[in-house]
């Protein structure tokens, strides 16, 4: 009897995983439905946790980490890692060394971000 239950649950989980792979064929990656504005707003919230030079100035996508926010290279790499944690992405080394503005970071994040977990769950189910 238990064997039957195990077999049935195995079958259902297997078919669920099969279904999720078929969902992804062609795309190879879940398409994010987090908008760029969301990413931008959340990025700013993360950046505000750091000590910034011009804390009252509005942060726009052309704001430069070093020039406008008064960060040195350690500070802004620190900020990049904080952003990685917030959005669950990892900046490629080559990309991270090139990023100078908030907009570039946001662009990279919105390209590479995974959808939020509950959405992901729903798709798999």
């Amino acid at each position: 009897m238990f064997a039957n239950i195990v077999r049935a649950s195995l079958r259902s989980s297997l078919s669920a995983s099969l279904r999720s792979t078929t969902l992804n064929t062609g795309a190879f990656r879940f398409v994010s439905n987090v908008s760029k504005d969301d990413v931008f707003a959340r990025s700013i919230a993360v950046l505000k946790t750091f000590e910034l030079k011009n804390i009252n100035d509005e942060i726009t996508s052309s704001t430069q980490f070093t020039k406008d926010l008064g960060m040195d290279s350690l500070d802004y790499n620190d900020a990049l890692v904080a952003l990685e944690e917030e959005f669950d992405v990892v900046f490629d080394d080559a990309v991270a060394n090139e990023i100078t503005t908030v907009g570039e970071a946001v662009d990279y994040i919105s390209k590479n971000i995974m959808p939020e977990e509950d959405i992901l769950d729903k798709e798999i189910r």
Binding site: S73, D78, V81, V90, D93, A96, N97
Partner: peptide, 18 residues
């Protein structure tokens, strides 16, 4: 190179935050 050091710094922070 500064790039290598920054990359090392990021890797260490990533681990630390984990």
């Amino acid at each position: 190179s500064p790039q290598a050091v920054r990359s090392l710094y990021r890797s260490m922070l990533r681990e630390a935050r984990g």
